[in-house]
Design a protein around this nucleic acid. Structure first.
Length: 265
DNA sequence: ATGGTTGGACCCCAA
């Protein structure tokens, strides 16, 4: 079964429903994973999203911050939501797809500005969050389960995942402790980074551009914060990957653009 | 070195 799966940090699901409609018309995905929905469950725009052609929706939100959702054309089974690092934050939701493959949608904490866990609790939380993901990943490997993990990981691990490796090495999202932990997570199950499976590691690749730039395209100070990873057993099933860079130019855009892959499960 | 923008809630916080 060929599936087109899309991930997008939408930065408020309620104000970007018109963009979501456009996105669906342009890309026709089977599954959409959203992060930063910023809507508590009672105000989640379930009917609006359903009418875009996604009758099967799971979501886990809170007031003002965080929040994740999965929209699907096909039936979804066994919804779960992790509590990671003893937090109340709604940053994870997962479902089962065809053939027992699980799909995990993560919104990793951004981690604040100061890259020192002793001075900045948000940074400490981010590091611990990725460590918890690693513990979970090791269990998954023990059980030999195939899975897709994706979302806003808020870490740009490689030199060419940022506009300037040198200038960002002490900027949260590209610091050594974050990158080390993300690589430990990756190695814990030999996760395949789908973007880099298709795009050479020497080529600059971004999924996020700050709002605080006059001309995001001209300055091009981007970072690759949004990721899609698959377990090694799913690598032969991969069909394509792309980043919808043009979405950054849409009317009232998110600062993240959608990333998508096709996989034949 | 600094400040730049956005969304959601509330008179500021996190990104």
């Amino acid at each position: 079964m060929m599936l087109k799966i899309l991930s997008w940090n939408i930065n408020s699901v309620r104000i970007r429903i018109p963009l979501l409609k456009m996105l669906v018309e342009q890309t026709r995905p089977d599954i959409i994973c959203l992060q930063e929905t910023k809507a508590d469950d009672p105000v989640f725009p379930f009917e609006d999203l359903k009418s875009l052609g996604f009758p099967h929706i799971v979501f886990s939100g809170q007031k003002s911050y965080n929040g994740v959702a999965i929209l699907s054309k096909h039936k979804l089974d066994n919804k779960t939501c992790f509590t990671i690092a003893k937090s109340e934050d709604k940053r994870h939701i997962s479902v089962e797809l065809a053939g027992g493959v699980s799909l995990h949608n993560f919104y990793v904490p951004a981690g604040g500005d100061i890259p020192d866990p002793a001075l900045n609790p948000a940074y400490d939380f981010k590091l611990r969050f990725v460590e918890h993901m690693t513990e979970w990943s090791r269990e998954l490997k023990k059980d030999k389960r195939q899975a897709i993990i994706l979302g806003d990981f808020n870490i740009a691990p490689n030199e060419h995942d940022v506009w300037s490796h040198k200038q960002l090495r002490n900027v949260v999202s590209h610091t050594e402790p974050e990158i080390t932990r993300l690589n430990t997570l990756k190695d814990s199950y030999g996760w395949n980074d789908v973007a880099r499976h298709y795009v050479d590691s020497e080529k600059k690749l971004y999924s996020w551009w700050s709002y605080r730039n006059r001309d995001w395209r001209k300055s091009d100070r981007g970072r690759r914060l949004d990721h899609i990873w698959v377990t090694p057993g799913l690598t032969p099933a991969l069909k394509s990957f792309s980043i919808l860079k043009d979405a950054r130019d849409w009317q009232s855009p998110s600062d993240h653009v959608p990333v998508l892959m096709e996989i034949d499960l």
